[in-house]
Design a protein around this nucleic acid. Structure first.
Lengths: 404, 404
DNA sequence: AATAAATAAATAAACATGATTTATCTATTG
DNA sequence: CAATAGATAAATCATGTTTATTTATTTATT
């Protein structure tokens, strides 16, 4: 069991460690447990859930009938062929709840509406030279109004929350984004979460973009993993996230998995940060330095075309950096897997993963058990989906918050 | 709430994730919560506990009367001076339970008996050229018999468990320990936990020595901290541990906090492991290379005397390595503190901590919030005390196991 | 083919446990 | 003596467990 949380009126969570537990906490936990198991396994009969949880068949029966009455579960067709009464597989009702995920990036924003099973029902993109809070609020508000109109009333009423995935201190990137100095200062003084919370009837959450992407891998990853894993998202800048015990670990200050800042040895032996070797912006810079255009890196992530030596050098540098970062992180936490995803063509992602694994094997890992290096299974839209995973985890999964 | 655990007959824990919760789990959790709060705060009135936990006064009253009846709590003298009925401060009964901690090291073993408040009641040391399982079992068994005889019957009956703190793969250190080749191979095939579990009427736990020391800092540290912290223990070899959410985090494989293996840049810029720069054995080697005797490093940890340049160089290298390790770890988890302790004179520990903080401040920490670097508060015997903390945490504190 | 036995899923009813609510008592200060 | 705060007993409520029963199916037997 864990301490409870006091929910503030605006939907933000204030952790209250050391909170006692009562019966409602018990039922709430067991309900979340059932839903988590169904998310992991697809569909399960009540008895199977009873066996897995150690709860009595009767308790599971009561809980699951309740969830079915709330339209969170649907019953499948009876499974015959085995001795005894046929079992009825229960699974998550896709229409049981909906979640909104908003990713705010340097060049574009994405707003996704997903259903209870994680299927994308709607996705809108919005491109710009650089983002401002006013512009973002306008675009999202408009789009939400459109959703509210186009989707049927029931869907809109079943939206359980909005999660915003956004880099920390966006205003510091004005330079890199090519924005006029001060143009992005609005972000410094805008509480974007509060701004949306005011406009929305459901709770709104805010999380670092790469950490959110990690959450997407955790909740929607296929196959789902209960492993502790470290996650890298290669975007314009590289970022990361941490999953421990089947939960997104965001840390006391929310800055856990700040893997862009992890020190790695550069090609010259001097120490630099991972962000300076593995970010796609590094590749962009190299291309631009050659006098060529690099905008297709952002606009056509399905196929980057021929990039020749630039790509080769970037992949090699990124892989070396990632390998070193994974090594160092493995000394801190014994991750079972390192997952790499990003805003890049599948072929490039595959190659980066392969090279990272190769480099990792050459490093001195005495005393460590190295994690398996794997490709992400969510893909490019992991950040927006991760945003949507925040209200989902918060409301329907066990122990959404840190460690605990 | 968290999943439950199936207890095996021998006292070992097999984690069963995804276990449901029932009323006994609820009471168990609330009892542990009360005990944890009392450990943190020294003494608290029932109403104060009720306020802190959010439980009703009546519930806390019932729980605490039960704990008092079990002799785990004692009532202090009524506090007058405020309006209303005087409050009765309740605190942990020192004689409520006892715990045994065994540290097995390269040169010596320690067996400690501590009471419910963490006070050392008895401590035996045993030195040797190198350790063997048979020898260790013999010495501990004899000493336990002595404890059983000397202490009163009630004390012995209230021993809640034995925790063993021991380096991983002890046999690999035969060389460094100066043992004849193969002399320590016995460890490879001995399940030392099982061996003691057979001989003891209470549960026996085994944990890496540095991780155990981290547990001692967590449970007995003064002032106690609920911070997430990273912990280094400088012994013959440096090791580490991780505390998250007020719990010792040991990881899925038990190898979390393997900080000796974290890569750091050496003075020449080449990457090496922290264990190769910050271990006391590095200092020993330097002294021996000069043809001098270094045994007092192990035998008189209160005062190393004059070591001049050797000590200077070692402290500098260790501090640089530690600073880099803390930096890298901070990118993975946003620790609030980095705690350094070890088998060394207080003056040396203080100097290492000061230098580490100084070096840390010079490193590139963009995007990170660096933890405060602090001295350990438990001191040299942290490993043996940490061993004793294992059964304590397991039985009396909330969520002893990993994350979650 | 008909029938009985075995098996497994599901659930109703009675019960046990533990937290909450309400009311009351107690010891203190002002 | 009024006000206040700690403490707890009794009644109540929520939730999980146990026990017994119902239902639907397969498998073995006649």
């Amino acid at each position: 069991m864990e301490g409870g949380f006091a929910r503030e009126s605006d939907g933000a969570r204030t952790p209250r460690p050391n909170l006692g537990t009562n019966q409602s906490g018990m039922r709430d936990y067991n309900e979340r447990l059932v839903l988590s198991l169904l998310r992991q396994h697809g569909s399960l009969a009540k008895t199977e859930i009873a066996r897995m949880t150690g709860l009595s068949a009767q308790t599971v029966s009561v809980i699951m009938r309740g969830l079915e009455a709330d339209a969170l579960l649907v019953r499948g067709s009876p499974q015959r062929g085995k001795v005894g009464q046929p079992s009825i597989p229960m699974s998550l009702n896709p229409d049981g709840a909906f979640f909104l995920g908003l990713k705010i990036g340097r060049r574009s924003s994405e707003l996704a509406l997903i259903d209870f099973r994680g299927t994308i029902r709607r996705m809108r993109q919005h491109s710009y030279a650089y983002p401002t809070p006013e512009e973002t609020i306008r675009f999202v508000t408009e789009d939400l109004a459109e959703v509210a109109e186009s989707a049927d009333r029931r869907t809109w009423e079943r939206v359980a929350g909005l999660g915003i995935a956004m880099p920390f201190e966006l205003w510091n990137w004005a330079d890199a984004a090519g924005a006029p100095p001060g143009a992005m200062d609005g972000w410094r003084h805008t509480d974007i979460r509060a701004a949306f919370a005011e406009r929305c009837p459901f709770p709104v959450y805010l999380q670092n973009d790469a950490t959110s992407a990690c959450g997407a891998e955790l909740v929607f990853g296929n196959p789902p993993t209960r492993d502790d894993f470290i996650y890298f998202y290669l975007g314009a800048f590289v970022g990361g996230g941490i999953a421990l015990g089947g939960r997104l670990f965001t840390g006391r200050t929310g800055n856990a998995g700040a893997l862009g800042s992890i020190p790695v040895p550069g090609p010259d032996g001097r120490t630099r940060q991972l962000i300076d070797v593995a970010s796609i912006s590094v590749l962009e810079k190299a291309i631009v330095a050659r006098g060529e255009d690099a905008t297709h890196l952002w606009t056509s992530p399905d196929d980057w075309g021929e990039l020749g030596d630039d790509l080769e050098r970037w992949m090699e540098g990124a892989a070396q950096g990632l390998a070193h970062a994974i090594l160092a992180a493995s000394a801190v936490i014994d991750f079972q897997a390192a997952v790499i995803d990003g805003w890049l063509p599948l072929s490039v992602r595959g190659e980066v993963v392969a090279r990272t694994a190769r480099h990792l094997a050459t490093l001195d890992s005495e005393g460590l058990r190295l994690p398996a290096v794997r490709e992400g299974t969510v893909g490019r839209h992991a950040r927006a989906l991760g945003g949507a995973s925040l209200p989902l985890a918060e409301r329907f999964l066990v122990g959404a918050q840190s460690a605990i």
